[in-house]
């Protein structure tokens, strides 16, 4: 509210100034967002900034970082920098699509079961059942049945996340549907679909955004775990998980091979969680008022 008044009264400050003010007020969003933006940019521009991540150069095996190989090479003489950058593509792709997929399906289920008590009784028991399945086990089972591909990994990681989203949405719907303005909408002749979409759905968005960041972070970790176990993405794609798995034998003589993917994984997950925490503080009205 105050920012709106300030913005209306004074001449608009330069974008850089406004960004600086925003960053000072929301340090976690700024740090997480910046890191994430840098990684995403690098992943998007991978062919421009990195060499070939797949080609073997046995002559260059286990070279330490140098001008030619920024982060050295691995046991097969592959460029660790290029592999790390390309690995980010898989991680970000999996994180993002899992979050979108889980949120889209969980949102629909949550809205329906929050509003219709009959749907609720059946669907939420089903959700409880799904929640009991660990993502890694489901993924291993699915990959062994359907073969390994990024798509299967995404589906396998997303399914156990759906109940978490559905429960969150359902709880918001249950509290919002009791508010007088929803009764007012019914009294004004609004149809159920309109009540759900116009009066209830918007209240679920802020907690959903926050939940989506956490799902994204955990999906990246699970994907790395699956790749590490060799049960995820096909091994010919460079991913942080399979880089760590292949490099762990050479940890003593070539630590850079494991350091780069490990550090990137930790950094990306940390920055997503920072972003999520920052967004939660900003979007949750109860927390925001305290600040």
């Amino acid at each position: 509210m105050t920012t709106a008044i300030i913005a209306a009264d004074c001449p608009a400050p330069a974008i850089a100034d406004r960004l600086r003010i925003f960053a000072r007020r929301n340090p976690t969003i700024a740090i997480g967002g910046t890191l994430l933006a840098l990684v995403s940019l690098a992943a998007a521009a991978a062919p421009l900034i990195a060499g070939d991540p797949i080609v073997f150069m046995p002559i260059n095996r286990l070279k330490p970082p140098s001008d030619e190989f920024l982060l050295g090479t691995d046991s097969l003489g592959r460029d660790v920098f290029a592999r790390t950058i390309y690995g980010a593509r898989i991680s970000l792709l999996v994180g993002l699509t899992v979050a979108l997929f889980a949120v889209a399906i969980g949102l629909g289920i949550g809205l329906a079961s929050g509003y219709y008590r009959r749907v609720d009784a059946v669907v939420m028991r089903l959700m409880d059942g799904i929640m009991a399945i660990p993502a890694i086990l489901l993924a291993i089972a699915l990959v062994s049945v359907m073969g390994s591909s990024v798509r299967v990994v995404i589906v396998a990681i997303a399914i156990p996340e759906i109940p978490r989203v559905a429960r969150l949405v359902r709880s918001v719907v249950l509290s919002v549907r009791e508010l007088p303005y929803v009764d007012a909408a019914r009294a004004s002749g609004s149809k159920v679909r309109k009540i759900l979409l116009r009066h209830i759905l918007p209240s679920t968005i802020p907690p959903l955004i926050v939940q989506a960041t956490y799902i994204c972070a955990s999906a990246i970790l699970v994907e790395a775990g699956l790749s590490f176990l060799g049960a995820g993405t096909p091994p010919e794609f460079p991913t942080w998980g399979n880089m760590i798995a292949q490099s762990r034998l050479y940890l003593a003589i070539a630590p850079w091979t494991i350091f780069a993917p490990g550090a990137c994984l930790a950094l990306v997950v940390l920055s997503i969680n920072l972003l999520g925490d920052g967004l939660r503080d900003r979007l949750d009205p109860r927390l925001a008022r305290r600040m």
């Binding site: 007088p180 303005y181 009764d183 007012a184 909408a185 019914r186 116009r198």
Partner: peptide, 16 residues
């Protein structure tokens, strides 16, 4: 419903 409307007690919670 068109012929029957309601005004609520809470002027804050009754408006989206």
């Amino acid at each position: 419903r068109q012929r029957m409307q309601i005004v609520f007690q809470d002027p804050y919670a009754s408006l989206n």
